[in-house]
């Protein structure tokens, strides 16, 4: 008789939520897999882990992982996570969300959380467009790319997310594509162990929606693009790491030590209470 072994990562996923909603060729599964791998390798206490997401395809990731999880309103996962982290600094709070959610509607929260250095970790799936609503232009859509709302080619300049994160004060900044599975996993492990605000951008294929308008109709074609043009340049200048059709600079850009907001506020509380004791 044949023995059916459970998948080694089964305990990290909510079976009741399956099947997932993601298209074939989508990179979200790879990102989720790398995240779970990192959590497994670090032997993290799932009870202390909270995954928060916003709205969008990758936003459903929060529901798929078998930890504490919260699926917030569009654009607000960082602000929500700030409340969780400050209320209980023992919790490890990870945001998995998309480029539109985090940098268009939620852009203000991103820069301010990085500036404050709140100890939350942000993993952003950048698929260059709004996939869930059918492929509209977003804050990362390349110039001249075709989307349902840029039928004549995109005339807006996209954000360089790693540059934005570094300039806003993040203590850890990295970019990978879904092709760089092992490096991404190691990078997530590093992210999860950092103090303060950390950020990883994962350039991710969206063949069904973005690809179909931009001559890359399969996941394989998009991955092939990543393979051809990505170059690992660790600790290069994030300002020069703009994503173009010809070049995707990946690697770690920032890895610095800086005391976190939650540590500072709890130090202040302790200081105030010490003074109180002296009276």
């Amino acid at each position: 008789m044949e023995t059916v072994m459970a998948h080694p990562f089964a305990k990290y996923l909510r079976e009741a939520m399956m099947p997932h909603i993601w298209c074939s060729g989508c990179g979200n599964g790879i990102i989720l897999n790398c995240f779970v791998q990192a959590v497994d390798e670090l032997q993290m206490d799932l009870n202390k882990l909270v995954v928060v997401s916003g709205i969008g395809c990758i936003g459903r990731a929060a529901g798929y992982v078998n930890t504490n999880s919260f699926h917030t309103t569009h654009g607000r996962p960082i602000a929500f996570a700030t409340g969780i982290k400050l209320a209980n600094p023992e919790l490890e709070v990870v945001i998995i969300s998309g480029d539109g959610d985090l940098f268009a509607i939620g852009g203000n929260h991103f820069i301010h959380a990085a500036r404050r250095n709140i100890g939350i970790k942000v993993i952003c799936a950048n698929n260059f467009n709004y996939g869930m609503t059918g492929g509209q232009q977003g804050p990362t859509t390349p110039v001249e790319a075709l989307t349902t709302t840029t039928p004549y080619g995109n005339i807006e300049h996209p954000f360089n997310l790693v540059h934005l994160a570094a300039a806003s004060g993040a203590t850890y900044v990295a970019r990978w594509t879904t092709l760089h599975v092992r490096r991404l996993t190691q990078s997530i492990k590093k992210l999860l162990q950092k103090e303060g605000f950390g950020f990883i951008e994962v350039v991710s294929p969206c063949p069904e929606i973005f690809g179909r308008y931009n001559k890359m109709r399969t996941g394989l074609e998009m991955m092939e693009w990543f393979r051809k043009v990505s170059a690992i340049e660790n600790f290069s200048d994030p300002a020069k790491a703009e994503i173009t059709p010809e070049r995707i600079v990946v690697g770690e850009f920032v890895d610095i030590a800086k005391i976190s907001y939650e540590k500072l506020i709890h130090e202040k509380i302790a200081e105030i209470n010490e003074k109180k004791m002296q009276w």
Partner: peptide
């Protein structure tokens, strides 16, 4: 917070974290 949208979101987060 940076605005009232964020304030309300943080309040819900803190509530779910037990405060």
């Amino acid at each position: 917070m940076e605005d009232e949208i964020a304030s309300m979101a943080a309040v819900i987060g803190a509530s779910y974290a037990g405060l």
